[in-house]
Structures are given as C-alpha cells and as structure tokens.
Design a binder for these strands. Structure first.
Lengths: 240, 240
DNA sequence: CTGATATGAATGAATG
DNA sequence: CATTCATTCATATCAG
C-alpha cells in the first residue's frame, strides 16, 4: 500500500474553516476528502484495536465528530474509509494467496500498513499485521487490465468462465473464511469485542425469497395495475 | 449516478451486442451490468416521476425490455437497481452528521483544473429531475438519531414531495421513527411523465450521487452496544 | 509532464 | 428491506 509519503503534510486542507475555497475555483475542495495524519492514525486505531469494521450511524457520527478536530471530514468519509480499508485488506490477502508471493517486491515500505501519509506518530503501527506475510508491496495486480489471476477463487472455479451470465444460482464463493482478527492489540485496550455481532440477529421475518423479486415467474400483479399502466405510458411516451 | 466524467469509459460495452469481448480471454466484459446513460435516465425517471420503487415481476420485465434497446440488461439488473437506489437514497439521508452548517457548501466548484474534462460531477448536487423542489430540510427524516443537523446538506433531495403528501396513505407518524416519508406513491398517484423529454441535453444525468451508505440502524443502542462501548472508551481515551 | 500507484467514492450484486 | 461484499471509477500524489 502506500509507499510511504516521505514528505508529510501535503498541504492537508484540514481546516474546517475551509476558507480558501470560496474564491474561484478553489480547488482545495477537490471533492475528495484527504485524511490528515491524525485522522488516519485514529481510524487505524479503531480498526485494529477496537475491531471496528463497519461502524453504524452512531459510530460514524462519533468518529467523524472526533476526527473533525483534525480536519474537515464527513460521515461518509468515515464510512467509506472503513469499507475500503476492510475490503482492501481482504483483497490483499486474497491476492497473495492466489499469485505467487515470490516476486513483486518493488514496494518499499515493506511494512505494510504503516501510516500512509507520513504518519507522524503511529502509535501502534500495524506494520506487520501479523501473519499474512505482509502482502509484499502493492499487490496491486493492477486492476482493469488483467487481474484475473487464474485460480482466483478458492474453488478454482471462475465465475466468468464461459461467457457472461453464468451467474444465477450462487456462484459466489461460499463462505470465505473470515479469519481476520489480525491486528495488534495495541497498548492496553485489548479485550475488544472484535466485531459487532448482533445478539438477536436470528430473528428473521419473511422467508422471502431472496433472489430478486420474490416472484418473477410471471404472476402478474393487479394491484398496481394502475400505476403500472401509467408507467407503461410513460415508458412509451418518452422513450425515444 | 456516476458523478464521474464521461471521459473514460473503460469498458462500458453497453450495447446489447456486447459481443466484442469474446476475443481474448479475459472476461473483460466484466460480468457486471453497466447501465448506459439512457438506461439510468429512464430508471430515474421511473423512480422519481412514477414512483416506482420496488417493481414487481411484470414491471421488471417491461422495464428491462424497454431498456434493452439501449444496452444489454436483464431483469435482475432492474431489480437490483431499484433496490439499491432506494436503499441508498434513504441511507444518505440518515446519518448525515450534523456538521457545521457553515461549510455546507464545500464543493460545488467544479473541478476546473484537474485536467479531467468536465467535471460536472458534483457529488452533492441535487438532482433536479423533476419538479419537486427539494424540501428544505423539513422533516426529511426523523430518524431516530437526529436530524437536526443541518438539514439540506447534500443529496437529500427528495422528489415527489408535495404531491402525495396529501394522499399519504399511511404515514401515521406514531412511532415510526424510521419514517421513510417518501414512499412511493401508491396506485392512485401515478404521476405522469410530465417530464419533458428533451433530448439528451447537456447534462450528465447522473446527478445524484449516493452518499455513503451506512447502517443507521442502531435502534437505540443495544445489540452492538458492547463493541461500541469500548470504542467510545477508546475514543475518549486518546481523544485529546 | 507522464505513468504508476494509493485510495476515496460509487454502485452492482448478493445475502439474511 | 437492511447490510455487506466486490469491483470499478476517479483522483491525489509521488516517481522518473
């Protein structure tokens, strides 16, 4: 991952005051949130030490509120951060597994996570994350072009083998082993709940069929006939 | 949707012919449906102007049949599209952090420099698709948590507001904190397309962006209380 | 400047 | 319908 940002403080527009932007094309607003060092540090803290993976609204609120003191940030940033971080960690692991771990070391860092953006203070740098062999460097595998690492899926079956649409019926992997729990428990906070497991999740209401639309198999519906009728009209009307 | 620029389109083989891919080997056809602009436009049209939210099998079939002229599409795509769109629209409304209303407008500035061509992408733009005028921060959500936040903010746009407010089938606001006020208009409401079809003008049509998704669900604090509790503790501990 | 990579953001697809 | 996962798109930032 991040090779390391040797020079820190990339201007971090971390000011909540967002003063600059008002002017012309104030680029600073660049649309994209740029986490500050502190923010990242804390996020990782939460991730590794507290096992936060998919915070809920309340958590997001609190987290972002807390991080806001270090720079502008919105709830969605926190949300996406966790989503991405988690996904990428997993992806990395998956890739490593799939392609041969030998080559590919052009990456410096070697440390792995180690604070992106400089990191002035990594409290608990996760640098190593543990066992997964430190995904050497940007595994990257470069997306788009070819990533298709052959046996990608554990089962070895490739969903997209034939042509397209083979999907249907769970082609997805069964239940990948969650096995995460890496993390260095940091300082003294361990004993964390790893991750939120809802207690009463068993309750399920409708045995509704999952696939889209419970009933697709024909079965016209009269109830919404009206609405549908106009829908049809509208479809016809402006569709081209 | 895609707030992004039109420039790239790496794959987008959105034509029904989509045959191209067969050549090499990789399934670059990405298995995943990539809606074309027109398809999206129509889907949103249906969503906003016709109140379609969870189309039934028939509707799905018709819609997909209709959209098929613009590119390959299957029923499930339509199904999922509505599911996701609806879910995300709702989500984005919740959890919005009450951030400082002061910088509510951060962005706007269209990119400008960045070489990226255009940049109409404003993530926070509101859609404008129809005639409803985005209710200004009114009730909006009433979620359980708080909605006292700045109100507008980004995408809160909620279409169809006025119209059915009157009918309002069952929106008893007793305990439904969840209040999804928007609701599809039921059968009698059918809004017509009164939408000028105008040709594909200049806009990108993907105005709306989803905000982050999240799970506001917390329903008070119960289930994940544990985990969250420790999180709070840790936040407090090193917070400042 | 240009290419590569890291990562924020979005969204299709599922699952429960 | 809520939640999560996987992939992809876009851009900030650094290497050369």
């Amino acid at each position: 991952m991040e090779p390391h940002h040797p020079h820190q403080l990339p201007q971090q527009q971390n000011d909540q005051d967002a003063s600059v932007k008002g002017t012309f094309l104030c680029r600073q607003t660049s649309t994209r949130w740029t986490p500050t060092t502190e923010q990242i540090r804390i996020l990782k803290e939460l991730y590794y030490n507290n096992g936060v993976r998919s915070p809920n609204a309340d958590q997001i609120q609190k987290i972002s509120a807390r991080l806001r003191q270090y720079g502008k940030i919105e709830g969605k940033n926190v949300f996406y951060w966790f989503q991405n971080y988690k996904a990428r960690e997993r992806q990395k692991k998956r890739f490593i597994n799939c392609e041969d771990p030998s080559h590919k070391f052009h990456n410096i860092t070697s440390g792995g996570i180690s604070a992106s953006t400089s990191s002035s203070s990594n409290m608990f740098t996760v640098q190593h994350m543990g066992n997964y062999g430190a995904y050497g460097g940007s595994v990257t595998t470069t997306d788009k072009t070819f990533r298709e690492c052959a046996g990608g899926f554990d089962g070895g079956i490739d969903p997209y083998t034939s042509t397209y649409m083979i999907f249907d019926k769970k082609k997805s992997m069964e239940k990948r082993v969650k096995a995460e729990e890496e993390e260095a428990p940091g300082p003294g906070i361990e004993t964390l709940p790893l991750f939120p497991m809802h207690g009463e999740d068993n309750l399920k209401l409708n045995p509704n069929t999952n696939y889209y639309s419970s009933n697709w198999y024909g079965r016209s519906n009269d109830a919404n006939a009206t609405s549908w009728t106009s829908l049809e009209l509208s479809l016809n009307s402006y569709t081209k």
